[in-house]
Design a protein around this nucleic acid. Sequence first.
DNA 1: CCACAGGACGGCT
DNA 2: AGCCGTCCTGTG
Length: 291
Amino acid sequence: MNKWKCEKNNIILKDIKHFDPIHTFECGQCFRWTQIEDNNWLGIVKDLAVNLEWNGKDLIFHDTKKDDFLRVWYSYFDLDRDYGEIKNQLQKDDPVMKEAISFGHGIRLLRQDFQETVISFIISQNNGIPRIQKIVESLAQQFGEPISCGKPDIRTFPTCERLAATSLEELRIVRAGYRDKYIQKAAQQICSGEIDMDILKNGDPSQSRAEMKKLFGVGEKVADCILLFSGIRYDIFPVDRWVRRVMAELYLGYEASNEEVSRFAAEKFGALAGFAQQYLFYYAREKKIGM
DNA sequence: CCACAGGACGGCT
DNA sequence: AGCCGTCCTGTG
């Protein structure tokens, strides 16, 4: 268990290792964190909003109750996991991975809400990060619930119940384009219990993917992102354009198909494939590999 | 004006 | 099983 303490109205994690908000929030896994000052980030998760401060050493959750820290943030930030051990395993006999890890040493895989992750990554298809953030924010403004935190206009990500009951006409306000019908249908499918969470967690990776792909608007890549970024499983290696290029350049020597890259990664990184993907993705973007 | 962005669907072979 | 036209919208 990571060391933390309650001081005044804040929760403080002293001298936290393996964390940097830039690495963690800007590696493409989440869409509701914004940098508000040099050392401060505003994030909205479940029914909470927080001003998170990181000074290079300590992590401070401003105006956060102990209850909320234990109920939401502790799990969200994956604080029980030993990232040092993961790094050791991944970079053993692998200088390429060692380099990637040194670039994104502060990456953590956030354990995000399943429904929010489904809808967010349906929106992500054929879209860049700024537009995804814009649509996600608009969804919250239109269909989310207000969060009372002193700041105006902060809203929760809408539930699938709410989205399932929304007409396509209403949904068009968020300008998700042709993805609006995916959002509506997938939300309805989730509400009707079409997805078996047990298969997602405990099936083999291909069964798990197939289960995710039952959702309208979810293909191979989005399925993998949802499984990884909602903390359901970590033996998953989402392959997109960036990852395909970085794997070609650093490991394979040629541009392989998504399917082939995925197989290679499963073989090489095994149970830690998801962590490997994040380090490589961040590295690719920083070094502009694939542009 | 056109190309393309961190894909998926559906119809076709 | 694989290929390809099409899909909204914003940006260059």
